[in-house]
Amino acid sequence: MRKTVTLLIIIFAFASCKSSKVSDKSIPGLSSKAIVKKNTAASFNRKTVKASMSIKYKGKEELPNISASLRMVKDSIIWLNFSKLGFPVAKLKITPDEVKFYEKIGKTSFEGDFKLISNWLGTEFDFVKVQNLFLGEAILSLEQDKYEVSVKDRKYELLSKKRNPIFDIKYWIDPVHFKVIKEEVGHAEKNQNLTILYKDFHKISESLFPKGFLVTAISDQMKTTIDVNYKNVQFDVPLRFPFAIPSGYRNIELE
């Protein structure tokens, strides 16, 4: 009886391993150029986005269970209204040239460049990177590089052929819809590592959009995590972007 049980365990273990290998082998062996082309074809192509979000942030401060309303005009403006328990607590307005922010609890404000966003996210960001993060796109264009391709865990893994002395970047791409599922950027010189994990994609009005994303930024000084989940996503609807910093707010000074 014991020999029979042992034999069954071996058979199931072998079958399990074989199944895993077959699932990877069943993914077409595409060139990096073909994968990048399919990823580009799957790029988000709507003009505006309106969505609700739940956010958990942990960095220099911990802000669990924050809600936010997102409004975006692609390549033009990103607007966020933050609330806690239904009460508005902060607003953020981002354009390609400027970041504006104010929060009501401490009565502080900011008007300037992307230092504030980079400070929150734990690594350097600009408008395009922030926009791509919200839209589920690679934060750096895949078309700017050439890659070595492998298939691991039923995903295409793309690693740059050119070893950049400043940073290394790696992408994991879904073999069905060809969206980036995960990306890692490591800055060896600054000892920083950024990981973005998208929580799958679903089709809304014939467009693929992430269900949410998790950002993890690690440096010598700190670790920052931002966990975002989307709700009530709409595209191409009329939008307003009300924003006015109240008088008497103290301006945040960043180095």
Rank of each mutant, 00 (worst) to 15 (best):
K182M: 07
A41H: 04
F82M: 06
H177Q: 01
T95Y: 03
P64G: 09
L254H: 01
K162I: 15
K179Q: 10
M53V: 07
E253Y: 13
L197Y: 13
I173G: 09
D126G: 02
L133M: 10
T48K: 03
E143P: 04
K146I: 03
S207I: 15
A13N: 06
P88T: 01
K33V: 06
I166V: 14
K162A: 11
P96Q: 01
L8D: 02
N45Q: 15
S247E: 14
A42I: 12
K74Q: 12
R46F: 03
S141Q: 02
F87L: 14
V176Q: 00
V185M: 13
K107F: 06
R250Y: 13
S26R: 13
L80Y: 06
E103Q: 07
N81H: 12
S76G: 01
L158K: 13
G86V: 08
E183M: 12
A90T: 11
A34D: 15
L214W: 08
T4F: 07
K50L: 08
L208A: 08
D24G: 03
L7Y: 07
D75P: 12
K231H: 15
S109A: 14
A188C: 02
S67H: 09
V149I: 08
G122H: 04
D153L: 05
S83F: 07
K25T: 05
L254T: 02
S207Y: 02
F213T: 08
F127I: 00
D153M: 07
D75H: 11
K170N: 10
Y156N: 14
I10R: 03
P64L: 10
I196G: 11
L80S: 06
W172Q: 14
K152Y: 07
V237A: 00
S52W: 09
T6V: 11
T95W: 00
I35C: 05
F201K: 00
K21F: 12
S141K: 05
I66S: 12
F213H: 09
V228L: 11
R154W: 04
Y102P: 01
S54N: 12
K170G: 11
L121H: 03
K115S: 14
I55T: 08
F201T: 00
N132E: 05
C17R: 04
K74D: 10
S205D: 15
L197T: 15
V185H: 09
V149C: 05
T48V: 06
I169C: 04
G86W: 02
E157N: 14
I204H: 01
K37D: 05
K38N: 14
S43L: 10
V228C: 03
D220K: 13
N164A: 02
I218Y: 01
